[in-house]
C-alpha cells in the first residue's frame, strides 16, 4: 500500500461523498434523500478502510463498524419516520414539511398578556325534552298508541312553545 493507492481511495471516497451530497441537496423525495445519506456514509467507510490498510492496524475498520451501526439505526428510524409522515400527508415530498421549520407561522403578539379578553366560550344548547316539574304531563306527550300522530297539538305544550319562541 503506497501513497498513490491511498490517494486514489481517498479520492474515490470523496467522489462518493460529493455524489451523495448532490443527491441530498437536490432530490425532493424523502426516500432518495436518505439513500443519498447512505451513499455519503459508504464514502466515509471507504476512507476509513483505506487508512486502516495504510496504517496497518484495525482501528479504521472498527470505526467503520461504528459507521455501519449508526447507518443501520438511521435507516430504521428514517423508514419509520417516512411511513409515519406518509400516513399524514400522503406524499413523499420533503417540502410538504417545510412548516416544521416555523418560518411560516404568524408572529406572536408582543408585550404582556394582561388585559387581553377572556375569549373562552362555552357551547349553548337549546333545551330539549320535558321538565319533570311540569305536572301533569301534557297530554300530547303521553304515550297513547291509539291516538294518531297527526292530531298531536304541539302548541299546547309549554316547553315546545318556549323552544319555538327562542328559535
Amino acid at each position: 500500500m503506497n501513497h498513490s493507492e491511498v490517494q486514489n481511495l481517498l479520492l474515490l471516497g470523496g467522489i462518493l461523498f460529493a455524489i451523495g451530497l448532490i443527491g441530498f441537496l437536490t432530490r425532493r423525495s424523502i426516500i432518495l434523500m436518505f439513500l443519498s445519506l447512505e451513499t455519503m456514509l459508504s464514502g466515509v467507510s471507504i476512507n476509513l478502510i483505506a487508512f486502516s490498510r495504510f496504517h496497518q492496524n484495525y482501528q479504521g475498520q472498527i470505526l467503520s463498524v461504528m459507521v455501519l451501526t449508526i447507518a443501520a439505526c438511521e435507516a430504521a428510524i428514517a423508514l419509520a419516520m417516512v411511513v409515519s409522515l406518509y400516513r399524514r400527508k400522503a406524499t413523499l415530498d420533503v417540502q410538504a414539511w417545510d412548516e416544521l421549520s416555523e418560518t411560516i407561522l404568524p408572529k406572536e403578539p408582543e408585550g404582556d398578556y394582561i388585559g387581553m379578553e377572556h375569549l373562552e366560550t362555552y357551547p349553548k344548547l337549546s333545551p330539549a325534552g320535558l321538565d319533570p316539574r311540569d305536572q301533569p304531563m301534557p297530554s300530547s306527550f303521553q304515550a297513547n298508541p291509539n291516538q294518531p300522530t297527526s292530531e298531536l297539538d304541539h302548541k299546547t305544550s309549554p316547553i315546545v312553545s318556549e323552544v319555538n319562541q327562542r328559535g
Partner: peptide
C-alpha cells in the same frame, strides 16, 4: 411519476457546493 421525483431543489448551487468540496478534498 410524481412531480417531486422530477423537480430538483437548486441543482446549480448543489453542484457548486459538491464541486468545491471535492476540490478541497483533492
Amino acid at each position: 411519476l410524481q412531480w417531486y421525483d422530477v423537480q430538483l431543489i437548486r441543482p446549480v448551487i448543489a453542484a457548486g457546493v459538491a464541486t468545491s468540496l471535492l476540490f478541497a478534498i483533492a
